[in-house]
Structures are given as structure tokens and as C-alpha cells.
């Protein structure tokens, strides 16, 4: 199991990810699964170049990412997976990607989203998608930076 971290973060690669998470996990590769980003040539290039030297970044559409991640899950090289929304994780999970834990790392406030914990806000639909993931056997945790203790979603989700 080398998908070290599957993280939902609407900023994808940023300071916490580069400065703290990558070091802590010693991840050797980043896979970003996001349809819109994968179709934007400019963003793809910026994300590829924004990661530290020697850490390759693959920016893929979700369908391609599922195939790639199933392949990567079988090799020992530690991989960090970044996505923007719970829906993407659900799609990956349903496509057969073995995801034991998903980490809510950053979901900014916006229309329809309600703040759950610190920098994590969720819409009712997103919350439902996360519950579905839990039913499929994927643990959902909130851990904004590597030094935080992970909080299981269940502790914050009072079912409303």
C-alpha cells in the first residue's frame, strides 16, 4: 500500500503540502486527479514545476488517474494523491483504487458550504459523499498539517 496520503485540498499543491507533508511522508511522487486542472495546460505546467526538485507530478483526469493509481498502489514507491473534492475520491474509490484513508486537508468556505472545523467547510452533498466513502470502508479524517493529530470525520459529523 504505497498511496501514502489521499488528500482533499482545494489548493492542491501549496505551502503545507510542499514544506511539511512531502517531507513527513517522504513521498517520491505526486498524483493530482482533477478534470479541470488536467485540461488546463498552464496550470498543469505550474503544478509540475511547483513541486520540489526530484518529485515528479502527474496531473491526470480522474478516469486516467484511477488506472494510474491502481498501478502505483502496487509498487513500493510512496505516492501522495491530491484532489479537490470528495466527489473525486468517491469516483476513484468506485473505480477500484484502494484508498484506506482520505484526509480532509483544506476545503475553503464558499456558497452552500458550512464550516465544520478550522479551514474545512463542506456542502451537504460533499458531506454525503464522504459518508458514502465511509460506508465503502474508507476512513475519513481531518488533518490539516502533518503535525496535527488526525480527527475522524465521525467525531464532528453529528448526522445533520
Amino acid at each position: 500500500m504505497s498511496l501514502q496520503l489521499v488528500r482533499i485540498d482545494d489548493r492542491l499543491i501549496h505551502g503545507q503540502v510542499v514544506a511539511v507533508w512531502l517531507r513527513t511522508l517522504s513521498a517520491k511522487r505526486i498524483v493530482i486527479a482533477d478534470d479541470a486542472t488536467a485540461r488546463d495546460e498552464f496550470l498543469r505546467e505550474v503544478l509540475t514545476l511547483a513541486a520540489p526538485h526530484g518529485v515528479p507530478v502527474e496531473v491526470l483526469e480522474v478516469v486516467e488517474a484511477a488506472v494510474r493509481l491502481i498501478e502505483l498502489a502496487g509498487v513500493p514507491e510512496p505516492v501522495m494523491v491530491l484532489v479537490r473534492s470528495p466527489r473525486t475520491v468517491l469516483r476513484l474509490r468506485r473505480a477500484g483504487v484502494p484508498i484506506a484513508v482520505v484526509d480532509l486537508g483544506g476545503l475553503g468556505a464558499g456558497p452552500g458550504r458550512k464550516r465544520l472545523h478550522k479551514t474545512i467547510s463542506l456542502s451537504p452533498a460533499e458531506l454525503e459523499e464522504l459518508r458514502e466513502l465511509e460506508r465503502l470502508g474508507t476512513r475519513v479524517e481531518i488533518q490539516i498539517v502533518a503535525d496535527d493529530r488526525p480527527i475522524p470525520l465521525r467525531d464532528l459529523d453529528q448526522g445533520n
Partner: peptide
Amino acid sequence: SVKSGLMGPLAGIGDSLSQ
């Protein structure tokens, strides 16, 4: 999309530099 697409990667590079 410029704001939300760039704020992450540039923070990654910026934090690596400044902080």
C-alpha cells in the same frame, strides 16, 4: 480560475523561499 489555480502552487514555492 487564475486565483484558485495559482494560489496553491505559488504558496508552495513562496513558502519554500520565504518561510
